[in-house]
Every structure is written in C-alpha cells, then in structure tokens.
C-alpha cells in the first residue's frame, strides 16, 4: 500500500497543472482589444487564465463577466440587438448582470469589475463582484 502511494503520489502531482500566474490587479485592455470592443460591441480577453467577456451596453457602460458558460464551459457572446449574453452550444441566455434567462446553465455568470476611464482606456479586474 505504501509502495503504491509512493508511486501514485508523485505521478498525481506531476500531472496536476501549476496554478496560472499573471497580474492579479486591474488589467488594461490593449489598443487592439479596445478596437474590437468598439467594432463588435464586445471582446473576449484572457486574464489570469480566465476568459473574460468585456462588453459595452446600450448606455455605453462597460461590463465584464466570465465568458465561460456555467453549463458546459463554452465561450459566450454578447448579442447587442437583444441586449443579452448568449451561449451557442446549448442555447443558454443570460442577462447583462450574468443572471440566467433561459436554457440549462445551473449558475449565473460571475461578474467582474470593468470601467472605461476618461483617457479612453478600459480597465478590468477579475476579482468577482457580489
């Protein structure tokens, strides 16, 4: 038993990926990302190993939410015409606060901090908001 544990433990540890590293504080979107945000109304950016959906709603406010659908992990998108967030994999719909409108997701999308500053830059912070 001890022999088995001494073999399996290092193998298990070896296979377990190391935690993602990167800036944990607020992150500025790049010029390209801001361009895409303005063109499509939303952009998906990687922050500390997370896919983050940054969108500009009809009132011009910046919102940041997890881009990972809480059902099966597909990447969601912002549908500006219907003012909702949609996951194409299983037709899940979320409101702009992340709440589930319809479809099979069991949880809302986690929300993050997002803001457009006076100088035009967009800053997001992946510390989850209540």
């Amino acid at each position: 038993m001890g022999w088995l544990a001494s073999v399996l433990y290092p193998v298990g540890r070896y296979l377990t990926p190391l935690p993602e590293t990167g800036p944990t504080g607020p992150v500025n979107l790049t010029r390209g990302e801001i361009g895409k945000l303005e063109q499509d109304g939303f952009v998906i950016v990687p922050v500390v190993g997370k896919r983050v959906l940054v969108l500009e709603d009809s009132e011009g406010d910046i919102r940041a939410l997890s881009a990972r659908c809480t059902h099966e992990g597909c990447t969601v998108q912002y549908v500006a015409d219907d003012s909702l967030i949609w996951c194409a994999c299983h037709n899940a719909k979320f409101d702009l606060e992340g709440g589930v409108i319809s479809g099979p997701p069991p949880k809302p999308l986690p929300r993050f901090y997002g803001e457009r500053r006076d100088d035009g830059s967009v800053v997001i912070n992946v510390v989850e908001q209540a």
């Binding site: 998906i44 881009a67 659908c69 969601v76 998108q77 994999c89």
Partner: peptide, 10 residues
Amino acid sequence: NPLAPAYPGI
C-alpha cells in the same frame, strides 16, 4: 481560437 465565441451547431 480560444477567445472567439462558440457558434451554433457545434
């Protein structure tokens, strides 16, 4: 492209 949204019919 991991940063592109999923599309219908997957």
